[in-house]
């Protein structure tokens, strides 16, 4: 079980939105994490500087939260290495092949009222829900 946190989750979501808006306002770019990250891989995009800085900022965030609150962010990550390796491969491949992930399609794309983004979001939500159902209630049940 995890606690239902409507206020914290809405506030956090609004920070994500603020980041997406600022990136568009200053740089004219979509805040799609799979795109920002994957174009750092060789051959890196010519504009790799802001991309690397964005990724560094993301990685620094939990440390800042830790310093401010005095406690590390609560996290429960599976220690099943085979599962996490397969999950990582699918997430990395799928997000680049399908041109976006939760941020690019789910947040920025829906905000642009893009039919492609809506389709991708419905598809990945559906396969994720089915995957969790099978893992927890069919195999694990």
């Amino acid at each position: 079980m995890t606690e239902f946190t409507p206020i914290g989750s809405t506030a956090g979501g609004m920070l994500i939105g603020l980041s997406a808006v600022l990136l568009m306002l200053f740089m004219g770019r979509i805040a799609g994490i799979s795109g920002i990250l994957s174009r750092l891989l060789p051959p890196a995009a010519p504009d790799w500087g802001w991309r690397a800085a964005f990724i560094a900022g993301m990685a620094a965030a939990p440390l800042l939260a830790w310093a401010v609150t005095g406690a590390p962010p609560v996290q429960a990550v599976s220690g099943d290495f085979v599962l996490m390796a397969v999950a990582g491969l699918l997430v990395g491949f799928g997000s680049v092949f399908g041109n976006g992930c939760t941020s690019g399609h789910g947040v920025c794309g829906l905000s642009r009222l893009s039919a492609r983004a809506l389709t991708a979001t419905l598809v990945f939500m559906a396969t994720a829900i089915v995957t969790v159902f099978v893992a927890r209630h069919v195999i694990g049940g």
């Binding site: 599962l83 999950a87 491949f93 992930c101």
Partner: peptide, 17 residues
């Protein structure tokens, strides 16, 4: 791509961000 991404997301609970 979206379908594969969703399966991975459902397995690990992580998306790229």
């Amino acid at each position: 791509g979206a379908a594969a991404f969703g399966i991975g997301w459902g397995l690990g609970g992580f998306c790229p961000g």
